[in-house]
Design a protein around this nucleic acid. Structure first.
Lengths: 193, 193
DNA sequence: TCATTCGCTCAACAGGCGTTGACTCAACGA
DNA sequence: TCGTTGAGTCAACGCCTGTTGAGCGAATGA
């Protein structure tokens, strides 16, 4: 199967990367429980036992495959926050990293993925809250985050017909006023009915 | 174990309901794949074989347990749509029917659940779109729906700390301007930067 | 050159899964 | 009263899962 002259260390790195790639794809497509070690190994062109040897456990394989690199950011204004969130949604709309998709796909059924999701979302909420000038900044930031989560789920994972093929710009344009309404401090009173 | 004097038909109905209840709870808590027939039967105080005898297949059990009764509605104004959506979120916040939770919990990993979710959400989008006075009404309705989906997922299933114990009224109050921004036709131009 | 390392495969294990068929026994209808 | 029905159980099936230990053969370093 492979490249006779390649040194061991390099071969090992390549194989590990092949496995991680296959794992990311499968975890993203079918979630943690339906993505079997055997299927991942097959997709990577490798024996299932090798996957275990390299990653020890399906759990650890998932953790490495679904690791999301946290985007550390400086201080932002409220308006910048909106644009930042909108930009993160699109990232060219469909080029969302597979690791993130894997985590999202699994977060409702796999406890470890849920914990990761909570942490990642929690960090984003913290970052956003710092830029929202309101006493209930954390709650507003949480809603902002869940809004984007919902749109991402509906679009990337559920693949709702209505969102298919819609450009990220158009979604951003429609969503912008809604997000701004959350980041701007409410002054006017409102009625319930 | 059971009520000697109860007639057969009644016993049968009660047992079926016990199984469905246990199924709803487990599907809602851990999703389709992790909710085993054995665990459901145990929770219902019944033999696993009986579950199969009554429902035929785990798939059919899920379909019956996660059946969501569509709320058919008359025509609404745009503002009524917002209130309707907000009200549906709360339904006393935490008393979301377990069937719906089961469907939501499973929709990212179980194809059948995904199909159901698409259908239910699609119907809601249709209903909402009819009340939104804009050319891109369907897209706006879809975003409205995914927004509420995200909030529900974050609150009910992911149980984000920031949303825990927050009253539905407060969430509705914060979300209202955002939703109205989506239902009201945009007139003002907007800048991207 | 030769012993050693190590990437990788093979065959198997134990356990859990959905599902089935034979069975028990109380409720039923005549 | 007695045969029939049907609710419910029991033990087992075949399959698939994550995981393991023994082994093969090429790259490695002395």
């Amino acid at each position: 199967m492979g490249e006779r002259g390649v040194p061991r260390a390099e071969r090992r790195r390549r194989t590990e990367e092949k496995i991680l790639g296959a794992a990311r794809t499968l975890f993203a497509e079918v979630g943690f429980e339906r993505a079997t070690i055997r299927a991942i190994a097959r997709a990577a062109g490798v024996d299932p036992a090798l996957v275990m040897q390299y990653f020890g456990t399906k759990q650890e394989l998932f953790q490495q495959a679904a690791r999301v690199t946290p985007v550390a950011d400086g201080e932002l204004t409220a308006e910048e926050v909106v644009e930042h969130v909108l930009a993160s949604l699109s990232v060219k709309m469909g080029e969302v990293p597979q690791g993130s998709l894997a985590m999202m796909r699994s977060m409702l059924t796999h406890p470890e993925a849920a914990a990761s999701a909570r942490q990642v979302l929690g960090e984003q909420i913290d970052r956003l809250a710092a830029a929202i000038p309101a006493e209930d900044a954390r709650l507003r930031a949480a809603l902002l985050t869940t809004i984007m989560l919902g749109v991402a789920v509906g679009h990337q994972l559920l693949e709702l017909d209505e969102l298919r093929g819609v450009s990220s710009d158009e979604i951003a344009r429609l969503l912008r006023p809604s997000l701004r309404a959350l980041t701007a401090e409410q002054v006017a009173g409102d009625r319930t009915g």
